[in-house]
Computed example of a mutant assay.
Amino acid sequence: MNGDDFGQAIYLVVLGCAIAFWFFVENRQGLGKTLRQMSAWVLIFIGVIAAIGLWGDIRQTVRPQQSVFAESGRIELPRAPDGHYYVTLDLNGVPVRFVVDTGASAMVLTRADAERAGLSLGELAYFSEAMTANGLVRTAPVTLDTVAVGPFTDARVPAYVNEGEMDKSLLGMSYLQRFDRIEIAGGKLVLER
């Protein structure tokens, strides 16, 4: 601490003491009530400072984000609070959020996500079927021009559009097998090429 810092610290201490002295003199009739209110404001101030300091951890817990390490060819997907792993892929240049489903054999799009990716729903032919947890559903095979995540871009990727209702698109094994390594450890799903 140099001389300027020491002088500023003394100034702030003296100023704080003067304000505290004025505060207690002005409120000497209800000193107990004043101390309770002051304690409440000090705790609120400490809580705000703690929340600001921990915001990165809080945000990662509430809404975890995928991390892309392009130089090492690795993508890390944190486990979401619901226990699933989510990844955002660019389909034909449009970001689409998928739930990673190692039990699904293919990439399956909701109709809304397919439309956002530029596929015409009116031209889809639902002639194939898939067995899901909700029973048998009809699907339409499609080919996506590009699928990109981080530094990886794949062309002419086969997928299906589900005719039934789905909350999220599913990223199944037909796409996941493009990675050399898939590992789940420490609350993260790691994909490497």
Results as ranks from 00 to 15, higher is better:
1 M>W: 02
2 N>L: 00
5 D>L: 09
5 D>W: 00
6 F>D: 08
7 G>A: 15
10 I>H: 07
10 I>Q: 14
11 Y>L: 12
13 V>I: 14
14 V>P: 00
16 G>F: 11
16 G>D: 09
18 A>E: 08
19 I>M: 12
20 A>T: 12
22 W>G: 12
24 F>A: 11
25 V>N: 11
26 E>Y: 07
26 E>S: 12
27 N>S: 05
30 G>A: 13
31 L>C: 03
33 K>D: 09
34 T>V: 04
37 Q>K: 12
39 S>R: 07
45 F>C: 10
48 V>Q: 06
51 A>K: 02
54 L>H: 12
55 W>T: 07
56 G>T: 11
58 I>E: 08
59 R>M: 10
59 R>E: 15
60 Q>F: 03
60 Q>L: 09
60 Q>S: 15
60 Q>G: 13
61 T>V: 10
62 V>N: 02
66 Q>I: 06
67 S>L: 14
69 F>Y: 15
69 F>Q: 15
70 A>V: 10
73 G>F: 10
75 I>Q: 09
76 E>C: 07
82 D>H: 01
83 G>I: 01
84 H>I: 06
84 H>D: 03
85 Y>F: 15
88 T>E: 14
89 L>I: 06
91 L>W: 03
95 P>R: 04
95 P>C: 06
97 R>Y: 01
97 R>C: 02
98 F>T: 07
98 F>Q: 07
100 V>G: 08
101 D>H: 05
102 T>S: 15
103 G>M: 05
105 S>C: 05
106 A>N: 13
107 M>H: 01
109 L>F: 02
109 L>Y: 05
111 R>Y: 04
111 R>I: 09
114 A>T: 04
117 A>G: 05
117 A>N: 03
118 G>S: 08
119 L>I: 13
121 L>P: 02
122 G>T: 07
122 G>S: 09
123 E>G: 11
124 L>V: 06
129 E>H: 11
133 A>I: 01
134 N>Y: 00
134 N>C: 00
136 L>E: 10
139 T>I: 15
140 A>K: 03
141 P>R: 01
144 L>G: 06
145 D>N: 13
145 D>R: 15
146 T>F: 00
148 A>M: 08
148 A>V: 01
150 G>L: 05
150 G>W: 04
150 G>R: 08
151 P>F: 00
151 P>C: 02
152 F>Q: 08
153 T>W: 01
154 D>S: 11
157 V>F: 07
159 A>D: 03
160 Y>K: 08
160 Y>P: 00
166 M>A: 15
166 M>W: 04
167 D>C: 00
167 D>T: 13
170 L>T: 07
175 Y>G: 02
179 F>I: 01
179 F>V: 00
180 D>E: 14
181 R>K: 13
185 A>K: 14
185 A>L: 09
186 G>H: 03
187 G>A: 04
192 E>G: 08
192 E>S: 15
